[in-house]
């Protein structure tokens, strides 16, 4: 069986301090893309009245998952850095529910990966947020401008 780079994603997430801090984990790869998940947590709440998770937490999860989708498309470990990320927040995430993000790199050029992602609780058809991002892919040896996981 061929070794897929996505087999490493669980380990990579577990070794990304900020992802560990927010309790995010790798939830698998499918035709729809790379999926990550994060259980609801009190200390990540952005609005004490509604107990909704802060939009900034969703931002981080989307960013991270998009970057991994580029890795998945390359199927190798290269330096991937976010160039820009646009996020539309459609509705508040449900308090107490686990949040999922699925990201797919739908186009990869020599230096840029273009990614789409959705954040949701149960179905992509009922999204909390959508993201569109462009990621720079560089060779590993060069000290890139913003290598991130």
């Amino acid at each position: 069986m061929t070794q897929l780079f996505s087999d490493m994603f669980g380990t990579i997430i577990d070794n990304t301090p900020y992802m560990k801090a927010i309790g995010a984990y790798y939830a698998g790869a499918s035709e729809d893309g790379i999926t990550m998940a994060m259980p609801w947590r009190e200390d990540l709440v952005g609005d004490p009245e509604t107990r909704v998770i802060a939009s900034g937490v969703v931002t981080a999860l989307l960013d991270n998952c998009c970057g991994m989708a580029v890795w998945d498309r390359i199927n190798a470990f290269k330096a991937v850095a976010t160039l820009d990320l646009r996020i539309d927040y459609m509705r508040p995430a449900l308090p107490g529910h686990e949040l999922k993000v699925t990201a797919k790199c739908y186009k990869l050029t020599r230096s840029i990966g273009f990614v789409r992602a959705f954040a949701y609780e149960t179905s992509v058809d009922d999204p909390v947020a959508a993201a569109q991002g462009a990621f720079i892919v560089t060779a590993l040896k060069s000290d890139a401008t913003g290598v991130k996981s």
Binding site: T16, V57, L85, K148
Partner: peptide
Amino acid sequence: LIGNPMIPALHGGVIGA
């Protein structure tokens, strides 16, 4: 707040948030 411990660099999501 670190995203990539090897560089090390802040997580892009931290900067965004």
